[in-house]
Design a protein around this nucleic acid. Structure first.
Lengths: 130, 130
DNA sequence: GCACATGCTTGAGGTTGTCAAGTATCGAGT
DNA sequence: ACTCGATACTTGACAACCTCAAGCATGTGC
């Protein structure tokens, strides 16, 4: 019944292409809080895809100067990824558009939005609460 | 805030690959109610992508015997797509899994599920109500 | 030190997506 | 009837994403 709501799925690629990004690149940028390096392994887990995939995605983001690869101090096998200044401003623009309520939500009343929020928050596993 | 809930996005590809399908192929199958031919143009609109894309997707679904291309009676330019018997059973299995409540929803109480339903239903444009 | 696991990269192969160009058909205006 | 423009589909070239298998460097446990 409500899986129809997943028609919202089109929104992410649309926002992405407006910023000259792809959906996968958006997810990586979203993960990278400025100043917080992240091992590529963690990125692969977050995207739930093969590690070899991340190599290419990070390659393209790095080529555009949005992030950097660095060596990890504790383990020389792992490469961490850090967002650059340019990447951070891009990320801010991205997040602004992602969190802007889509038209489907805007159609709801203020009260409905609030109850929707609290219900959905309860549906999230406790680890992911922000 | 609740765009985090779109982490559910991973569910469709997962269900798809379990049935040896891809996400795009799932969407096409979902569109094709048995006995109701659909012009490829309409499929492209529903998927919000280029028409040339549909050619390949339909090619692969047709090669697996899940649907058929036919000529349209009223306009010889258009090709309509019809789901086959095999495609219909595949579609039934697909829909069963898609509409099954994901774990995030199952965590909610019965009453919360009901109010969630009614709110989301109001968020859908009236044309899409089922 | 050795065997094994782990993190990343590379290469091949398949699917999805874009765009541009081409063919066939339709519809309207002349 | 004829032409012109729009529409429906296909094809080809190219890029991105995805998986798998293989390879290299590094850590870890015996």
């Amino acid at each position: 019944m409500l899986e129809l709501l997943l028609a919202e799925r089109r929104r992410v690629p649309a926002i992405a292409s407006a910023l000259r990004l792809s959906a996968a690149q958006c997810h990586v940028l979203r993960l990278l809080e400025p100043g917080k390096p992240l091992a590529m392994r963690r990125v692969a887990e977050a995207l739930a895809c093969d590690a070899s995939n991340i190599t290419g995605i990070v390659d393209r983001l790095e080529a555009r100067g949005l992030l950097e690869r660095r060596a990890a101090a504790h383990d020389r096998r792992v490469r961490v990824v850090v967002i650059t200044r340019r990447g951070a401003t891009m990320r801010a623009r991205l997040l602004a558009r992602l969190t802007a309520p889509p038209p489907a939500i805007a159609r709801l009343s203020r009260g409905e939005q609030r109850t929707l929020c609290t219900i959905l928050r309860r549906a999230l596993p406790p680890s992911q609460r922000e």
